[in-house]
Amino acid sequence: MNHYADRFAAGRALAAALTHLRATEPLVLGPPRGGVPVAAEVHRALGGDLDILLVRKLGVPWQPELAMGALGEGGIRVLNDDVIRRTGVRREQLAEVERAERAELARRVRALRGGRDPVPMAGRTVILVDDGMATGATMAAACRVVRAQHPARLVVAVPISSVEAHAWVSREADEVVCPWIPAELGGVGGAYADFHQLEDREVTELLG
């Protein structure tokens, strides 16, 4: 089942599908932590600029991998009403998860930005890279965070995606590049031999 050795290998495979964007001097964005190694390889191949995009998934309390929504920098909030309805999450449960994730988002901004300002997105070709999409909720939120900053073009690039996530995110981005969309996606981690949780230190080193 493992399609990629690790996130770096996935990034190299993804970069090969993005060569048409090299001339645009793109801004390559990776959501920490898992998206950053993939984005770093895409940036290495295409040039342009590399930065992080901070987005937090709002996981269903008893099934945290399942996204019922997401938060982004600048107060952006996207909800997946279908998941909320299907799982029966109550308003106060959603609010509790949201409080926790908002605090974690603020912590990550401090830890990972290290006082650096985000690279401006206005007028740029922005390539939003992650290690995969399961529901698409986090990536949809990320797209809205980027859209609010007026890029010339927004491209989403992932090594693996579910059919549903690809369809949802295709409505948010100008282009979605994904080399592998299996008919059934058990989980993004299954696509990788090595899918370890990255530490903040690994992320800041890659950005360094």
Score class of each variant (00 low, 15 high):
G72S: 06
G187Q: 13
G136S: 09
D200L: 05
R113P: 12
E184A: 13
M133F: 07
D117A: 14
V89K: 10
P64V: 11
V55T: 09
D131L: 12
V36H: 04
L58H: 06
L94Q: 00
A137V: 05
R99Y: 05
L29C: 11
G186T: 05
R107Y: 08
E41K: 05
A141D: 08
A173T: 04
P61S: 10
L66F: 00
W62A: 13
G72I: 01
R201N: 14
R33T: 01
E205G: 10
V188Y: 11
N2M: 14
S170T: 12
V169H: 06
A10H: 04
E25D: 15
P120A: 07
E199C: 06
M68F: 04
E25L: 02
A152C: 04
G136A: 08
Q197Y: 04
V119T: 10
A70T: 00
E175M: 14
V169G: 10
G11S: 08
V155C: 12
D49S: 15
A39D: 03
V176G: 13
M121Y: 11
V78G: 14
A141P: 04
V145P: 01
R153C: 06
V89Q: 03
I76E: 12
P32W: 05
A193W: 11
D200E: 02
G190H: 11
A122P: 09
T138G: 03
R102Q: 13
R22N: 09
D51P: 01
V36P: 00
R153I: 05
A13V: 04
S161F: 08
A95F: 12
A183K: 14
A39I: 02
A103M: 09
L112G: 07
T24F: 15
P32M: 10
P179Y: 04
A152F: 09
A67Y: 02
N2C: 08
R107T: 15
A16T: 05
T135H: 09
F195E: 07
L94K: 01
G136L: 10
T24R: 12
D81V: 12
R124Y: 07
L21G: 05
T125R: 07
R110E: 14
E96R: 13
H196T: 06
G88I: 03
L50M: 04
R77W: 12
R22V: 14
V129H: 01
R86E: 14
G47V: 01
L50W: 06
P159T: 05
I181T: 15
E202K: 01
R99H: 07
P32C: 07
E164L: 13
A165L: 11
L198R: 09
H3N: 14
V155H: 03
A141S: 12
R113L: 12
Q197C: 00
V36N: 03
G11T: 01
I181R: 11
S170N: 08
